[in-house]
Amino acid sequence: MMDEIILWLTPWEPQPLLIALFAIVACCYARGLARRRRLRDIAPAIAFGLGLISMYVVMQTHVDYYAQYMFFIHRAQHLILHHLGPFLIALSMPTAVLAAGAPAWLNRGVRGLGELPPVAACYRFVQHPFISALLFVGLIYFWLTPSIHFTAMLSARDYWLMNLSMAVDGLLFWWFMLDPRAPGTTRTTYSTGLRIIVLWAVMPPQIALGAYIALAPDTVYDVYAVCGRAFPISPIVDQQLGGLITWIPAAMMSVVATLILLRFGFIHERSKPESADRPSASPVKEPVT
């Protein structure tokens, strides 16, 4: 039993820098929570914790082994790295808690880095609605191009490049999408309507790709036959499951995010000061005589 737990917790390919990064973020967040002691931090903290832990689990535990040798588990891994984990982290708006917990020099360093003109320009560029959508869908298509996927699964370097690029892009995309501030607060806080358009624009390409994989009569990704599977399973079933994971939950995330954005929209609308051109809620009717 103990052995099994140790086996599952041991990273298949340990990445010390990545583990250190997760540890630093987790420590800063926990310290921030303890310092702030606010009741309304609890719900976001659960979302943040789930997001962070899920991303760690799919990269630095034995799950990664199965993700390397089973197509459908690989797709589930990317669903968490690119969609679910970053979604939860962005939704929890962790900046304030992280800043409260991080040591002063780290806060200064991060803020200083973010204010450097080239960094700020790059950030604004990748967070542009069009570029953001292009990157989000483009990366999925890029790494799922059969020849590229083949090399990525065979080369240790490309494999980590693939996973990290998905995680970073996921964080950027959902950070941009789920920004709760009123539109226009910062240069990368776009209007709710525009964000919903982007969310729905990234859906059809994901559905098309997922459906193509799920319904393909032949093997699309032969690298899993080349490398062997973690357990004997029909290659076509493996591929169909992987296709379904690319197809349905990935696209549903856009729907969930739309609902959240609509809620943000209502909150902003309600908190707006009454304006003169706004029609009165209950117009006083002239008494009929």
């Binding site: 080349v226 490398c227 062997g228």
Partner: peptide, 23 residues
């Protein structure tokens, strides 16, 4: 070599399949 193998469940005769690299 980034390949793997795994064992299936044995049948009544004790025969089991092994998944392995095909390359």
């Amino acid at each position: 070599y980034r390949v793997t193998y795994g064992y299936g469940e044995p049948n009544d005769n004790g025969f089991y399949l092994v998944s392995h690299s095909s390359a």
